[in-house]
Amino acid sequence: MKETQWPLWEIFIQANPGIPHKHVGSLHAPDAEMALQNARDVYTRRKEGISIWAVESKNIVASAPEDVGSFFDPANDKVYRHPTFYKVPEGVKYL
């Protein structure tokens, strides 16, 4: 059998109930099940998590840093999406 490089997996960990999973790093594993087991051994030796997601790196679609300008442009001129844009008469409460 020849040595092959196992697929790369991105690992996301939820530290506590109720909060989102967060990217912690990556690792190599021959399949999903072993990716999870490796992730447990590599990234949660001190109870850092209660849930792990493993996603094969090749399946991640990412925006390109050189495009950020035009890509996020639509939000730039829409200040009216923020509550601070609106004037509220003095003395009015709970708004």
Binding site: Q5, G25, D41
Partner: peptide, 26 residues
Amino acid sequence: LAKVQDEAGHGMYLYSAAETLGVDRT
């Protein structure tokens, strides 16, 4: 044993960090 396991983990974190710049672990 726990300390030596940690060092293995450190190696893994760092190889994976190096791989983000396109070098192959093998």
